[in-house]
Amino acid sequence: MSHGGFFEVPSDLQNTWWGLVSWQLQLTLVPVLCGLVIALPIALLCRRFGWIYPPVLGVATVFYAVPSLALFVFLIDWFGESDLTVEIPLTLYTLVVLVPAIVDGMRSVSAETRAAAEAMGFGTLRRYVQVELPIAVPAVFAGLRVATVSSVSLVSVGMLIGNEGALGNLLSDALNYHRPLLAWDAVISIAVIGVLLDALLVLARRLLTPWARKATAK
């Protein structure tokens, strides 16, 4: 068995480098997508009933303040050393970013635009969905970018609960086998994935919002 290859993954991980990459992507993107799906109705409720917004933010922030490791350990009792144990906390974390991104984005729609919608006979829900939400898309994407990049790096913490950290698992092997190259591999790969995902989101935002003036696009 050779010990030199940069992309050579120790056999104890029972995976290839590409396998770890796609696992990393899954552990990153599933929470972000689930977070978005959960954040949307919560945000709509917060927009409709303004008074629930501060408590919702408070609860989300409390979750965020709990160290991720503690949540992992806690969830092992239910889900064992599985992907879900990693994905659930990461989903909760994305909510802290996404809910305010959506709510504040919707609230920032100009008073004139909102009055125009009202004057034309949009009902409240229709106004949220057809006017405010589309106009909030750049703000939502700004939130998605933060959520995605932080998820990419948080995934590696999963290595601490029995090799559930995708590329992060290379870090523990780097320690165990005294192979610093593995640590470099993990760090560089994760960083590259983060940058690429971020670039994809920027591209998607541009395609989805042809109406946004270049100068003001967030």
């Binding site: 004139e112 635009t113 125009a116 034309m120 006979g121 589309p134 106009i135 898309v137 109406w211 946004a212």
Partner: peptide
Amino acid sequence: NALRRSMGYVIQHAGLFPHRTVIDNIATV
């Protein structure tokens, strides 16, 4: 909402929907 749809409203500074094209803005009601 039926009442409002039966009255055209022109707002100061136009108040157009920034995310809709000219033709879709006009086609709103």
